[in-house]
Design a protein around this nucleic acid. Structure first.
Lengths: 127, 127, 127, 127
DNA sequence: GTGGTCTAGACCACG
DNA sequence: GTGGTCTAGACCACC
């Protein structure tokens, strides 16, 4: 069963997109695997304290990308083969890295500074 | 005059926030300096292909943070002293780094991988 | 439910202010009472033939003055205690009377004339 | 020469309308008479601390109603015969009284209360 | 030309 | 269905 324990909604972007990306990232990370069962819309919405429609919207988009399969009235499962996983991982990372570097460059940080800052912060927040 | 040549709008967040952050980052980077003149609402909106009010909203919020000064009928100018600049830079970096590390960790990237990816991408897009 | 049947929009001042004052006056008059339900943004805007946002603006300002309470997804209700009602009534009357006397004096009407005119008109439009 | 000493601009409605009505009311009151000279746009704008264009707009509307005559490059004069004066006075009063009674009724004031309030306020602010 | 405000329509999160 | 936000266009006062 896919766990949403580490999901922390943050203001600033639509919640349904946050759910979408949480699942995509989990898949890319290998935390969420092919065949894993997803919590039902009702359970998940109550777990996250949000509206079922919002969960529904995220699930619907994942279905459209064929990353989950939902049969009406039944449970939802991850459907992600090796190829899709690679592509997903590549897409997410490309998007992230592009945004990261652009932001940091715009803020006037040098490459060395950037690497240093990330390195330090990463260590501090290691479990 | 503050230039928006390097401004690249991206979907996913409100346009007015993108403008807001573009200016904040420019200020933090030293590209945008105290006393610099800002393009008018009309000029900038037409340049970016958006509505003048969207620009206005960004400018209004910057004015509330006392980073720009605008008076009716007159042009708008940056007003950043050394202290505000330091604080701004600190805030932006903290926010960025936190988001970066969180995203990358969620995508299952190791610290070494992350640093490597950023390092490489940075180099490739160096001018 | 607060009724807008007797609302007559008039050019010359912003619509949102007309709505604002209509509700304030109704509250002062006792026509609109604490706990009364307000029509939704959509219903009222369609009733008045205006944009939902214009209604929203009036409601938002009333909320800032704590005269109505609205929560997302739920209906909006009046929240007026005895104290607020007294203050409201005093404010509205002071504002009205001041404007009335100033206008009539500027138009060169004597006190006796003014009282006579108002007295007559009031009677003619009595239900 | 028409005097604007007693003109007090108040927020809430366009300044050009306030000028327009100040002159209309003055004419109705007999303070401003046929043939009286108006201050030039430049002088008046500087006197009231507002923009010449705003004065221009009010003058233009008065011209359209044929209450003043301006010859390009020359001075402006009131042009108001007995008939126009009567009509103007009737219009202004009708508009005022209608608004007054409506506002006060909406605020839940009785006729007696209304007359009493106006009577008292009028006396207090007598010179 | 400038910035400020009012009105509008579409979309989002929520019950 | 509800309220809240983002984007838009027109108009106002001002330089």
């Amino acid at each position: 069963m896919v766990s949403f324990d580490s999901f922390v909604p943050s203001g600033g972007r639509p919640i349904y997109l946050q759910i979408l990306y949480f699942i995509k990232r989990g898949a890319a990370a290998g935390t969420i695997r092919d065949g894993d069962e997803l919590p039902s819309r009702r359970v998940l919405s109550s777990l996250l304290g949000i509206n079922p429609n919002t969960v529904q919207k995220a699930f619907r988009m994942l279905e459209d990308e064929e990353l989950i399969s939902s049969h009406s009235g039944a449970k939802s499962f991850m459907t992600i083969d090796e190829e899709k996983l690679c592509q997903l991982r590549r897409e997410l990372l490309a998007e992230d890295i592009r945004g990261i570097v652009m932001s940091l460059k715009q803020t006037g940080v040098s490459r060395a500074e950037a690497l240093e800052l990330i390195n330090t912060y990463w260590e501090e927040n290691e479990i």
